[in-house]
Design a protein around this nucleic acid. Sequence first.
DNA 1: ACGTATTTGTACGTATGTATC
DNA 2: AGATACATACGTACAAATACG
Lengths: 134, 134
Amino acid sequence: MINPGTGVPVYRQLADLIRRPIETGQLRPGQRLRAEPDYMHEYGISRTSVRQAIAMLRSEGLITTTRRGSRVRVEQDIAEVVIGTDTRVTTRMPTAEERQMYGIAEGVPVFVVQRDGQDEPEILPGDRTALIGD
Amino acid sequence: MINPGTGVPVYRQLADLIRRPIETGQLRPGQRLRAEPDYMHEYGISRTSVRQAIAMLRSEGLITTTRRGSRVRVEQDIAEVVIGTDTRVTTRMPTAEERQMYGIAEGVPVFVVQRDGQDEPEILPGDRTALIGD
DNA sequence: ACGTATTTGTACGTATGTATC
DNA sequence: AGATACATACGTACAAATACG
């Protein structure tokens, strides 16, 4: 299943193996991935490589990880926000503090909404927001 | 400078130490961070911790890393895109293929622009795009 | 043109801590 | 209490890209 000599790093091969059932819907949102030792033993690879693969998927926003394991990220309810001509929106990754403050998972960006005449931009979680023009 | 027993992980303490001169402007966009061994020796910590700190800053979009070292991410020219009522915009992290295709750095999200009546959404790099309402 | 030094990337191993069930 | 699972952190070794003399 995983071949060390192919030029493709082991951790990437594993990431692709985990990605497949998620993208085909065999592993649905909310469902758990296998535990790190499972992947280690099944493919005969080190924990480092397993964790690197999982970290990659996490920073892509595909999964979330807690002390109880990793799960496919669940879709959130989306609030639609109307954007007028007086408004400029950019996107970026949140700081760790913003993640904490707004309850944002790793791998989820934020909208930065700057309205004319307001000093402070509004920060909107990227997994719970959609923008619509005015 | 770095204290192992404080409850704050070593790699986070280092990330904060690197973040400071960037946020205060002492280390400007395009300028190089020190090499991994420099941080190891200066703070007496392992390469694992140094790399974890740098990976964290990279996935926040604060720095970029090549084989020649890490640098503070440089601002790109920003194209403004007008969003009408017929358009819905979300944001997410790009896949590895999209990063490749559009030349997007790690830690940089994309806008997903879905216009009414069009099947395929448009993908716009988050570091080169701003949205304006109509 | 070539080798050398520098720097990051990949991958292994081990140990201990901590949250959760 | 005990088992499970992830988090942190140390170490080592070799590979690969890049820059430089």
